[in-house]
Amino acid sequence: MKRHALATLAVVAGALCAARPASAQGVEARSRPSVATAADSALEAQTTAVASTLRCPVCQGESLQDSPSDLARQMRAVVRDKLRAGETPDEVRAYFVSKYGEWILLEPTMTGLNILLYFIPVLLVIGGLVLVAFLVRRWTAPESTTP
């Protein structure tokens, strides 16, 4: 997005930009972001929901929804267009997986090895609750059981 700054520095701020090497052209052809309209708030909500589960490729761990980068914005537009065309959220996600790999999903699918990821915490909590119940029972038992 450097180019926009260069351009603006040159045009808006006058001769401020002397230190910068490049010149200030070509911004006019840039596509404007596809801006959310309130007209279809259901579509917008669905876009937000899907975009929140996809990872922005040029950021660090941010979702498409959160990232201010150009690519994330364009990918959100693709999400919106596909949803508008009648694709289901899962189909949209599958499209991005086919292009970028599983990496793009911020939440791993509940299949194969990934199941462990979801079950280990649940098992830990259940096991922990059983253990606590057991310990409390034993520790509150009448004196005779403790040596």
Partner: peptide
């Protein structure tokens, strides 16, 4: 060629 909205880039899974 010009790729408005990066639609083709996204189709090709471009990162950068």
């Amino acid at each position: 060629v010009m790729d408005l909205g990066s639609v083709t880039a996204i189709d090709y899974g471009v990162y950068g």
